[in-house]
Design a protein around this nucleic acid. Sequence first.
DNA 1: CAGTGGTCTAGACCACCGG
DNA 2: CGGTGGTCTAGACCACTGG
Lengths: 268, 268
Amino acid sequence: MTQEPRYRRIAEELRKAIIEHAYGPGGRLPSEGTLAEQYAVSRGTIRQALMLLRHDGLVTSRRGTRRVVLDDAPVQDFAQMQSFARWARSIGEVPGGLVIRQGWYPADAEEQRSLRIGDDARVLRVLRLRRLSGRPAMLERTSYPEAVGAIVEPLRTDTVSVTEFLERGGVYVADAEHTIDLVRADAEDAEHLECEVADPLLRERRRTTDPAGVPLEWSEDRYLPGSIAFVVHNSLASTPLTRQHMMPGAGSDFGSGSGSGSGSGSES
Amino acid sequence: MTQEPRYRRIAEELRKAIIEHAYGPGGRLPSEGTLAEQYAVSRGTIRQALMLLRHDGLVTSRRGTRRVVLDDAPVQDFAQMQSFARWARSIGEVPGGLVIRQGWYPADAEEQRSLRIGDDARVLRVLRLRRLSGRPAMLERTSYPEAVGAIVEPLRTDTVSVTEFLERGGVYVADAEHTIDLVRADAEDAEHLECEVADPLLRERRRTTDPAGVPLEWSEDRYLPGSIAFVVHNSLASTPLTRQHMMPGAGSDFGSGSGSGSGSGSES
DNA sequence: CAGTGGTCTAGACCACCGG
DNA sequence: CGGTGGTCTAGACCACTGG
């Protein structure tokens, strides 16, 4: 039962206390030494716990002063960020998923690079519409490498959560990289998202890998504006956020929806 | 001279080795024990170094196996993300800044909340146009609390980097929270960014705090599309990325540029 | 100045992965 | 099974903050 490491459980207790405003905001946490005594663990363990809160932007840390509680950050866990369905449920919406088209194709250059596969490899391309309580919210073009595709392919087309299915099969996501920018809807986007061609959409391109570093999927998701925002926290301690320059004309493809990446099924 | 802690210097050496493809990608790092010997430090110090690379998404880590090198991540340091000018230089562009309007105003509700100040506090609102090598790239509406505003106010209107100026004054940013979504240009946006009213823009709302947790600025930046993307890395180890739901009608303000937040100078 | 967090050590035990 | 990383301990010294 008690398989969660000590420092994680301590971090959870502290997080809860903070969210319930036991200290702040602006309040000071007990010192590491005091906490170590209270929890009857060594200072190192306490530091590990506090590190978690630090990375989530819940507390500061400076030599010389006690840690200060920051405002509540909109903290989600990794699992929730990784799965559209889980996220939807957490905000009280009913997630819907529907596969519009899927099939095996030879990997194009972008897929070969992103999924780290050879130029003779096949990928499963899936075009999927995501709904929030019935309303179209996002159109997802995903490419899976052979091994993962074989698991995903036989799924019912209305499977709500692919991520959760993969987890039951022992496939876990450990890392993800997201690129967020703006594109305009192509004909396919407009049809399924029920908007006009050339309407602006929020685009998230995503590459996920398993704990061994093996790429699991490469996806381009296009969100209708007004329903979603991305929130990022960064700090001196850890900075996963980056601006990226785009060569004029490249990157932000207007119109040609299948673009360079995982266009899904426009072929045939 | 040797003031950088040991583990950071080790991390830098390893990062360099990785970027120069001394191991991978896909290659395996030496074990922690081996590295500890090589650098003549304890295993704990090596683990601290590796933790940095882990959070940057450069290597994996799993019990039982050696760490695996992932693809090169687009790693920037915090300072670069924090400063438009520094970022611009790093991609070989010439940053430009021009204050269009600034002035002191009573803090509105949003500013009071974001900057954690009372309802009788004043803020300095600055409307600033940012250029990349001459071309308009971003329009920035920033609100500073009294203390910071007093430092920023006397600056020349063409000051390229406010961040760098503040650092010279001993003001350092330690934490930031970013919310990214899509809006349409209002009249003010269109005028200065040289686009049409209602053109889509990428919006980044940002709140930064100093090492003690005191809010330093609250800003709403609007980028012309096609010139920038945001890249986020997240992992089981640390997940600062979040989707956020928006109430229909709220959040994504169309038109009223000064929105709920730090509208700058539309008043008068 | 006393108290705090940042760094570092040297050791221990365990869970897990691969051969 | 041996080797690996994950967890945890008990101590030490230092840099910095604040009164």
